[in-house]
């Protein structure tokens, strides 16, 4: 039986008011199963808004969201923060790393924030997966764009989250670095059994996913495997 990781019902989110009101999400029902899911759609289709809502970064105007058995809706900021820290991983398009911390310190930041000692085995395994061994003591400014994104992936994986959200993770990379990064995300699904949800507008990137959700005008158009 396939276990549902994230489920949302009736998600609605609008920006602006009056004539400028834009309906970014219009009563969306969605489920993310284990494996690699890509969300695609043109600019303004609501794909980023959908990810922000289901990742607990933003609050929808209406609708309910569950991560496993935990319902997001109505959680206080502190509880939601702890949930993001312990059960969700993030990779953004750019600006993923704190400039003053080394790569290793950036990777262990979630443990640091939680006041826990990082699990050395977990750190070693994610570092192995993204092959960063010799760059761990460098600052982000000393790393290439591709290497920075790999550090971000390592940080997203290190807490063994229920789900990793990636928002256009290859948007600022060249094609070789993109392929490498997508390979790592794919690998984390296959080797570590990680659930990954990725927002992208690049069909080549979406090709790495198990499933693709297409969004247009704030609604899911198709779901393909």
């Amino acid at each position: 039986m396939v276990k549902t990781t994230i489920r949302a019902v009736g998600l609605t989110k609008a920006y602006g008011s009056g004539d400028a009101r834009v309906l970014a999400l219009d009563d969306v029902d969605v489920e993310f199963e284990p494996g690699f899911t890509a969300i695609m759609g043109p600019s303004g289709s609501g794909k980023s808004t959908l990810m922000h809502c289901v990742a607990g970064l933003d609050r929808p105007d209406a609708g309910r969201i569950w991560l496993g058995d935990t319902e997001f809706t109505g959680l206080k900021d502190d509880a939601l923060t702890a949930l993001r820290r312990d059960r969700i991983g993030f990779v953004f398009q750019a600006f993923n790393l704190l400039p003053t911390l080394t790569a290793r310190e950036n990777i262990t930041l979630p443990f640091d924030l939680a006041g826990r000692r990082p699990d050395p085995a977990a750190v070693r395994s994610v570092v192995d997966v993204v092959r960063l061994g010799d760059r761990l003591d460098h600052r982000p400014s000393q790393l290439s764009g591709g290497q920075q994104q790999r550090v971000a992936v390592a940080r997203a994986l290190v807490t063994r989250p229920d789900v990793v959200f990636a928002d256009e993770p290859t948007g600022a990379l060249d094609s070789a670095a993109s392929a490498e990064l997508l390979g790592f995300l794919r690998g984390s699904v296959d080797e570590l059994g990680q659930t990954v949800v990725m927002v992208t507008h690049d069909p080549a990137a979406a090709a790495y996913a198990d499933r693709v959700l297409h969004l247009a005008d704030g609604a899911i158009v198709t779901s393909s495997c």
Binding site: T81, A82, F90, L98, P110
Partner: peptide, 16 residues
Amino acid sequence: TQQYALLRAVGAHRRQ
């Protein structure tokens, strides 16, 4: 701002 936002996204509490 971006740094604080990143910290908040990866799980820093407001009081942190």
